[in-house]
Write a protein that binds this DNA or RNA. Sequence first.
DNA 1: TTGTAAGCGTTATCAT
DNA 2: ATGATAACGCTTACAA
Lengths: 334, 334
Amino acid sequence: MKKKPATIKEIARKLRISPSTVSRALNDHPSIGLVTTMRVKKMAEELNYEPNQTAIFFKQRKTFTIGVILPSLSEPFFSSAISEIEDVAKDHNYMVLMGQSHDDADRELQILQTFKKHRVDGILISLGKNTEDLSFIELLEESEIPVVFFDCVPNIDQVNKVYSDLSSGMKEAIEAFASIGHRRIALINGPENLLATQERETAYKAALTENNLEYNDKYIVHTDLTEQGNIEATEKLLALPERPSAVISFNDFVTLDVMKYARQKGLVQKKDVYFISYANYPLWKYMENPPMGSIEQYPDKQARKAAEILFENLEAKDPIEPKTVVFESKLVLK
Amino acid sequence: MKKKPATIKEIARKLRISPSTVSRALNDHPSIGLVTTMRVKKMAEELNYEPNQTAIFFKQRKTFTIGVILPSLSEPFFSSAISEIEDVAKDHNYMVLMGQSHDDADRELQILQTFKKHRVDGILISLGKNTEDLSFIELLEESEIPVVFFDCVPNIDQVNKVYSDLSSGMKEAIEAFASIGHRRIALINGPENLLATQERETAYKAALTENNLEYNDKYIVHTDLTEQGNIEATEKLLALPERPSAVISFNDFVTLDVMKYARQKGLVQKKDVYFISYANYPLWKYMENPPMGSIEQYPDKQARKAAEILFENLEAKDPIEPKTVVFESKLVLK
DNA sequence: TTGTAAGCGTTATCAT
DNA sequence: ATGATAACGCTTACAA
């Protein structure tokens, strides 16, 4: 026994007035008499009337929904980002459609297409680590859906993007190490094809130079970010004749593996070796022996800004020039 | 210069055929000739036609969207839950609207209403810790939106629910402690008003009895789950004349604080005191000195099952009897 | 095999 | 102050 939700027509029929009057009354249109308005509202109440938003979405060509694509919510970085996004969306009376790419470019594209099908009003996206084909951006431009990239952003102009400048934190990290006497500072970097990897490398070299430290390519190793890869990278460093005394790694997860492995090899942290990494893991405070510091990238600030830019676009009458916002990363000592 | 998306009408006009033929051709309706079908598809391609889903949603009274409400994505438990849900949804060609209650009953209700407004086809919800007013359930029943509760479920019949039986894990934990000689086993429980707290307490007492251990109410303390609360609870236990040698806590986050505090007080883990807690933190493997074990509740299994039940309901012709599925919690030693 | 027309629920325009 | 009508884009009886 399905009882369909009440409609404006029904209210109109019961009240023997026209649907348009009902519509206006419900929207407190000034031209409708107080009495009528009251009668309509009362009847709406009685019938448990709820406007059919799908009809409204359809008519208004707007869904009050934004789509968010990010690699994985299991990374604290992104779960904290999406929380901010949800809050901003809520303030604008929008809902959030969510999709995880799991760093899979195909899946990313598929989510994007589904978002488009669902006619989201705007899109926030943090690209997956393997996304290389950026042609979808043109597609989005054609369909005039505003897009803001954050965190992992495409290396092109004329798009909205919010990201973190990795070099400021790298500089602080190397300064911090240098100031307590380290001269052999290694970098455990990520997969070589990643922009994020290249940025770290550039920043690393620049910061060494600024601190009058010699660059030695033996001190840069790479990991594919798996546990196995992290361990292999560590082994390479440990095998060096002049072992590094300080290590900066791609992210906290890498450092966790590296620290564990180094511990097994009998190395004592903050004595034999010091660690700093790009932050994506907020629970160091519980560790008995945390690394020396983390380079923070402030996912919440990035995400909020990205969402705000998106809503500026959504609420603007005329197209807005693409914006780029960069937040400095910052070393935070533990 | 806005170019509106192409519509079926446009294709029809250009091809000088009727919109219905176009519609049928696009949907591979068997009655339409192959030639026509081809011509239509070609033209659709040329015009970059994309069906306006909002119109389809409206007409079909379906949005192919499910809403998921959960307390907070920052808890690994829930981020892993929502990943499963997203995967199941994807298999059914559904999208996921996401809302975090942050354990705030008002916000929970508000999200629920927005979901209803957006006409989601179904809802998955893990109740917040403070939700006491369950009257919204009737509202949902009236609007005939299928709902499946998971993890934190209401204590009523005639609803779909999937949750974890806390007592099996508690039993295993106490057995594990008893088998290595512990006789003074404490419970650091959560806020007293929570169902989850009451369940733990009941299970704790039952398990003690089963293992011929004496129950002493001094060994149950409560925390409000803040760091401060966790520490105070620990202090109470440490102040006891006969200090417990083993501690089961409400969840891993509590244990993290407790372990840290105990360490500061000079207690050595797995010598002076042993820990087990309900799992919500998957990164113990990186710890130098993890607790003895965690009681797993398998968020992924719960969430998947809940989603599957939801889709059964969504795809069923006739109403389905409410289902209850219980997974046993399990002690996993580290 | 294809076309015609009605309808989904709402709102905006134009009349009265 | 209120009503009639059309329109949003699509699907689907029913007709031809």
